[in-house]
Design a protein around this nucleic acid. Sequence first.
RNA 1: GGUGCCAUAGCUCAGUUGGUAGAGCAACGGACUGAAAAUCCGUGUGUCCCUAGUUCGAUUCUUGGUGGCACCA
Length: 307
Amino acid sequence: MTNTLVVLLGPTGVGKTALSFHLARHLHTPIISSDSRQFYRGLEIGTAAPTFEEQQQIKHHFIGILDVTDYYNAAQFETDVLSLLETDIFKQAPTGLIVGGSMMYIDAVCKGIDDIPTVDESIRQELLERLEKEGLDSLRMQLKILDPEYYAEVDLKNHKRILHGLEICLMSGKPYSSFRTKKVKERPFNILKIGLNRPREELYERINLRVDEMIKQGLVEEARKFYPYKHLNSLNTVGYKELFQYFDGNWEYDFAVNMIKQDSRNYARRQLSWFNRYDDIHWFHPDNEEEIFEFIDTSLYQFDIYL
RNA sequence: GGUGCCAUAGCUCAGUUGGUAGAGCAACGGACUGAAAAUCCGUGUGUCCCUAGUUCGAUUCUUGGUGGCACCA
């Protein structure tokens, strides 16, 4: 029997979680979360992470494994997931299940990610200060000298990309572009991508309702606990950053809640824009559960025959 | 009931000395390799309230409606 990783993806709020539970039972396998913000402990309400009770029913990996002050990235996720599949999940079941919407993380698992040095915190800080003092233009000019190839293709207005390219050049003494082979790595298992989507109006309606639900569950209190950490990347997250504006007195409460809805909708749109690049995703409406299961069963069966 | 003001994009509003219109926000599309729920780029999507006039031509001027707001009764 060949091993297969089923990838369940879709925009935020589409209904991945509900379906993932049924699918995990069906496949007799735990759920690997690939929602990068669900990795952080304490952000359960705002990231719609599965509750403790739900995790009692179905084993979940990667939920709440990090402290908000911890550093993590997609490459580490690739390593962690591959090792988990090899040493644990595929030992117990032929099929793994990864569920989420963080596309860079999913891509890292499915296609691999280039071997680039991990960023040194002091260099990043230094460059951030330079960005503040000297402006983006200065960093751009230096990148142009150190890595003309990347400079030619990078989005010159995106300071994060400029900064990252430059910090890799400075750290390694080699051009950032020399690390970017963009080679797709072979995986020792099949990958079956299932995409969930709904008509836009329906999706937005669900997102709006879910935000109201989060507020009822105590999102404001949850966010207040992390107010002292608002400068951290992990808290630069939809559902928290807007409430921090409210705590700071910059926004009215109702306005902040509406902004959470808006930012969630925009996030969903950006996710969909990423998905559109792929032609290996099999799309379904989340309500068609039987159809989805049937499709997965058939696909798994075919993998076994042809390999 | 009377008088005045207003009606233009999803919203708030500009504007056209008469030649079918443009800002902000929203919305929509896109990019994406160790910060990614991040970050960045692009795009006006319109019975200019309705009707009848004047005019070569009306969203703009005039008549009559309709709706809203304010004041007076």
